[in-house]
Each structure stands twice: as C-alpha cells, then as structure tokens.
C-alpha cells in the first residue's frame, strides 16, 4: 500500500465509504447504494477538486477521526459538525489542509445525521461492480470503517476547486416529502390515503441506509393477502404489516412484497437522509411532473 492512505482512529457509530453507487444491476438483486445525501457528497468532492464520482466517507451522528499518512486536502459537509485538526478548530464546508500524521476529527453532528468527508484523490478502495460504496443490505463493497483500519487514497487530480466555500441546506426541522401516489395505492382504504397525506409522522430511530422508518398513524389496507414480489424504486414508500410507512433509501432491496402506497420525489431524499430520529414528517401529494 502506498503512503497515500489514512488510518482510522475513531470509526464512529457507522462510517462507510460512498460514491454515486452501482445503479444498473437491480435485475441481479444488487441495490444501487451510494451516498444517502448525494448533493452533499458532490459538494465536498467539488471543494477538494475531485471528480463527482470520487468516493467519500459518510458518517452517522457521531462523526469519525482519521490520521492521513501524507498531507491531504479534505472537506467536510452534509450535517453541520465541529471539525478539528490536531485539536485546533478547522472550517466545515470548506477545503482544509491536513498535514501528514495529524488527527482529523469530525465531531458529533450538531443537527442532521450524516457528514461527508472528501479527500483529494478520493478513497481508493477496490471498486465492486463499478462502485466503491458500502452496501449494508447485501454486503457488497468495503466493510464499514473499523478502528485501526487503513484505507488507501487516490492521486489528486491536480485541479483545484474554484470555490472555497458554498452554502449548504440546513438539515430539516420538519421533513416534507412530496409524493406521487401509487403503484399500489389501491391496496389501501380511502381513509388511509387521506391519513397518509395529511397527518404528521415522525422519523423513527429504527431508520437506516435501507429505509427511513416512520412512527405515526397506521395505514389501513383495503386489500388483504400477499402481493407477489415486485421491483422496488428509490423513494418507494412501502407499508409493512404494522401499517407505518417506510421510505426506501439507497440500500433498499430491489424487490419486495409489501405494497408501495406512493413514491417520494428523488430530490427530497437528501433531506430525508439528514432527518434525525424524532423529526416531524409530512407526506404531501405532488402528482407527477
């Protein structure tokens, strides 16, 4: 392994390697995976001069700490959090030069859930089916970061970011998800559809990269019985037997047997990735564009 690498000093609650995922393999049962908040991942890559598809770290609530072996330029974005280099405060949402052997610490998110950490050159773990993303459903890609692990970095492109700081959306205080009803809205009662699009839900602490789980009024089914397995899309709102909607995120299964009452607009899913447990959620009908 070359010296362009970093050691994991503190892996945090769950830190994974993510890029833009591996779409195109759903027919083989392979989830798309990839960064849950793609605009944040793209932005930190841009801040260090990386290509959009470079692999970054995605942390969960408690951040992580790493020690690069060579000087690197990093940028932290997504959920706002304290950033330090050898204990000294460093900027969030802007390029930061980290000397060789210094400790880069990404602290606990002040709001939101997931921070993104880009290194110039990108995290250079071995790609699987064209992507370096960790897929927690099927186990493809590198394992989540562990204390003491060493991850390789790629060579910087030599291009410099044209921006040194950019505005980023704040994590949502209330998550408003625009939905188009269907394909299985007819499996629910009219009252359930009314409930779904008017009542308040909350983000459940059981949420993960596979799905945003909700707490709130259960949706009553009009049709009982089992739906034969069918293909699932990103943003599908699946309703398991307990009646609480689950919004499918990047590591969602490619097929499923619970009815999908509606589909969330892809543009709204980045906010869903940053909605901490307890955040109020509303599903609003937006129809199809």
């Amino acid at each position: 392994m070359t010296d362009r690498a970093f050691a994991v000093v503190r892996a945090g609650a769950l830190t994974t390697v993510q890029d833009l995922g591996r779409p195109g393999h759903a027919h083989l049962g392979v989830p798309r995976s990839g960064a849950l908040d793609p605009p944040a991942a793209l932005l930190v890559n841009r801040l260090v001069g990386n290509a959009p598809g470079a692999a970054v770290l995605e942390t969960t609530l408690t951040g992580c700490a790493v020690r690069p072996r060579r000087p690197v330029t990093v940028a932290v974005g997504g959920a706002p959090c304290p950033v330090t280099v050898d204990g000294r405060p460093a900027p969030w949402g802007a390029p930061v030069r980290v000397p060789a052997g210094a400790l880069l610490d990404i602290g606990t998110a002040l709001s939101g859930v997931r921070c993104y950490v880009a290194f110039d050159g990108g995290v250079a773990v071995e790609p699987v089916l064209g992507s370096r993303s960790t897929d927690l459903l099927s186990g493809l890609g590198p394992p989540p970061l562990a204390d003491g692990a060493v991850l390789p970095l790629g060579s910087p492109s030599g291009t410099y970011a044209r921006v040194d700081t950019v505005p980023q959306p704040a994590p949502p205080r209330e998550l408003v998800l625009r939905v188009a009803l269907g394909p299985r809205a007819d499996w629910f009662t009219r009252a359930a559809l009314e409930t779904f699009t008017t009542r308040a839900y909350r983000v459940s602490s059981a949420s993960n990269r596979i799905g945003l789980r909700t707490e709130g009024p259960a949706l009553e089914r009009a049709l009982q019985g089992e739906l034969p397995s069918e293909g699932m899309v990103l943003g599908a709102v699946q309703v398991p037997p307990d009646g609480r909607p689950v919004v499918f995120l990047a590591d969602h299964p490619t097929t499923g047997g619970y009815p999908v009452v509606a589909v969330v607009r892809e543009a709204d899913l980045a906010a869903a990735a940053q909605a901490a447990p307890g955040t109020p959620v509303r599903f609003v009908r937006a129809g199809r564009r």
Partner: peptide
Amino acid sequence: VREIVPAARTVLLDG
C-alpha cells in the same frame, strides 16, 4: 431505461 427488473408477474422499468 436504466433498470429492467422482472419479478413474479411484473416488470419494473426504472429510469
């Protein structure tokens, strides 16, 4: 189309 996902008695066309 990006994905063609057959299943028990459906085919999903995604993207």
